[in-house]
Simulated assay, not measured.
Amino acid sequence: MAVPDETPVEASPPKRVYAPDFLTELFRNPLEPGYADAAARKLRDGEPVGARKRVTSGVLALSLVALGFLLVVAYQQTVADEPARSTARAELIEQVQKRREITAALQEQSDRLADEVSALRERQLSGEEAQRLRDTEAATGLAPVQGSGARITVGDGPTPINPVTGERNTVARVKDSDLQLATNALWSLGAEAIAINGQRLTATSTIRQAGEAILVDLRPVTTPYEVVAIGPDDLAEDFRTGYAGRFFEQLGGKYGMSFDAREADDLRLDAATELKLRVAETSAPPPQPSTFSSSGSASTPAGPSRSSSEGGR
């Protein structure tokens, strides 16, 4: 009569079943099933002995030797490359310093030539013509001006970071359209000259957004944005009570953006660094020499009345 084998059959470890709330289950049972199985086998079989232990120890020792060799090679390579990196860095620093010195020398030469041009102009023009030219340069932004006016300051509000996505909320940041609104409002209120963070505005100036930066004539400006204008004595009050001032006050109340408009005396705005004209029109065409056609009658070719330069934006 056959006797059934009563040797207990080792039951396989139960598989983990995740509850719908994954985070709760993860904190309740943080141990990975593979680690639990390895711990159970070690408890059941014990430490490896004999040939198995020697093989395991040999593999471990070989791995440690290989890892140490790689670390030594990496360290030697790093030490060998360090002089080259230091030399390259020193050369770059030297080039930057030389370029700065060259730029400063060229700027001094440009200022000196500009003074010579001004002196020659004053010598050649009469007093009335020179004054009219100076007034035109001040109006177009080609000459520095000073006087009283308004100082408008706007700044970014708080820009919190979304804890989930990591993105920064930029709704409370000043946009290029905000600065355009401020400058257009100042022009309409009688401003004669305007500068944003020291950048003088001209008839061809641009205020653009480039990512998170605002560019005034391709030069970046940062918050807080200071719009300085020379104009009537009540320019600041008119701006504050006008549509632009009310708009910025609403932004401050809703998004926490800063806004201030106050009168200012002894303002000085530097000249614009560059003014590029796209179209020029002559007041009268230059005289042209007479030419004779095949029939013998004289004719005068008409000269061009408009010309365009290549440096316009």
Rank of each mutant, 00 (worst) to 15 (best):
E10I: 11
P14E: 13
K15H: 05
T24H: 02
T24A: 11
E25F: 01
N29V: 03
N29G: 01
Y35K: 07
V59D: 09
L62A: 15
L71W: 10
A74P: 03
D81V: 06
S86R: 15
T87Q: 14
A90R: 13
E94S: 13
Q95E: 14
I102Y: 11
Q109Y: 05
D111N: 10
R112D: 13
L113G: 01
D115M: 07
S118F: 04
L125A: 05
E137A: 07
A139F: 02
T140L: 06
T140V: 05
A143N: 03
P144I: 04
G147M: 06
R151L: 07
V154Q: 04
N162G: 10
V164Q: 13
V164L: 10
G166M: 10
N169K: 08
V171G: 07
R173H: 06
R173G: 00
V174D: 02
V174K: 02
Q180S: 12
L181R: 12
W187N: 04
A191P: 01
E192K: 14
A193F: 00
G198D: 07
R200C: 02
R200V: 01
T202Q: 08
T204W: 01
I207Y: 01
Q209A: 14
Q209T: 12
E212R: 08
I214H: 00
I214A: 00
V216G: 00
D217G: 03
D217P: 01
L218D: 11
T222V: 09
V227L: 06
D234F: 01
F239P: 00
Y243M: 09
Y255H: 15
M257T: 10
F259L: 05
D266K: 08
A271R: 11
T273G: 15
T273Q: 15
K276C: 09
L277K: 09
Q288V: 15
Q288C: 05
T291Q: 12
F292M: 12
S294N: 11
G296P: 04
S299G: 05
G303L: 08
S307V: 14
S307L: 12
